[in-house]
Design a protein around this nucleic acid. Structure first.
Lengths: 119, 119
DNA sequence: TCTACATCTCAAAACGTATTGAGATATTGG
DNA sequence: CCAATATCTCAATACGTTTTGAGATGTAGA
């Protein structure tokens, strides 16, 4: 992850519909969701959704695969990891206690039934 | 962290100069940096820097305090934690192995002299 | 092949954001 | 108080992005 990629990713996430798309796909897991399912979940026209999906694909945050008539989109988890790492790299002058809450929040995020850390 | 705050934060990070400012401040630690120091480090006019610092302040990612004639800016680490948690909340349908790289990357980020995970 | 379905492409209009330079404000030391 | 320093405000210009609707493309089943 370099600066150019990070800027592209943050720009992709800085839009209401695209942020919702990514969060739906992050929650959906590696199996992903069809474009039509996303259009209903987010509440945008298919034309507009297509525009946003293309932006997200260009940024590398999601990927597409065809399955019959549908196109299935899924989150690219390594891109999300890379973005987090880029943002927090070499943080806090070696004072880990400053960043501990971030680590705790992320560690808890894979546990939808348990207590999720809401920082 | 709600959607409105997250959108504001991502929009703030989706700009070359602002992303550099945040990364400088994240690296600088809680002591922060003066506006003039940032202007030199980033290479923008003081007028333009002021505009971007205000955007970042509005988004809650940085905060300001006066110290004599200087104004010292510093990263708001809980806002960064909250943003990461918002993005990754309830991820991957309970398959922690999908998100493990993100946790590892973030855990390693407080260690500037050791091996930083470059995912 | 024909039809229905799922998704994408394109151009135009509407909208918001970044940069610039001149000038204003606030603080310190003499 | 005055001058120097540090930072901020404002308005104009330039630029890029989002939305919309009509139509095109690609796929599956009868």
């Amino acid at each position: 992850m370099d600066e150019r990629q990070a800027l592209s990713a943050f720009a992709a996430l800085a839009q209401e519909h695209r942020l919702r798309i990514v969060r739906h796909l992050v929650t959906a897991g590696p199996d992903g969701l069809a474009a039509g399912v996303l259009a209903n979940a987010i509440g945008v026209s298919t034309s507009n959704l297509s525009f946003h999906l293309k932006e997200l694909d260009r940024s590398g945050l999601i990927e597409a695969r065809r399955d019959g008539r549908s196109i299935i989109y899924s989150a690219v988890y390594p891109a999300l990891s890379g973005l987090i790492e880029f943002l927090m790299r070499d943080c806090c002058q070696g004072r880990p206690e400053v960043c501990a809450p971030a680590v705790a929040a992320l560690s808890a995020c894979c546990n939808p039934t348990g207590e999720t850390a809401h920082v």
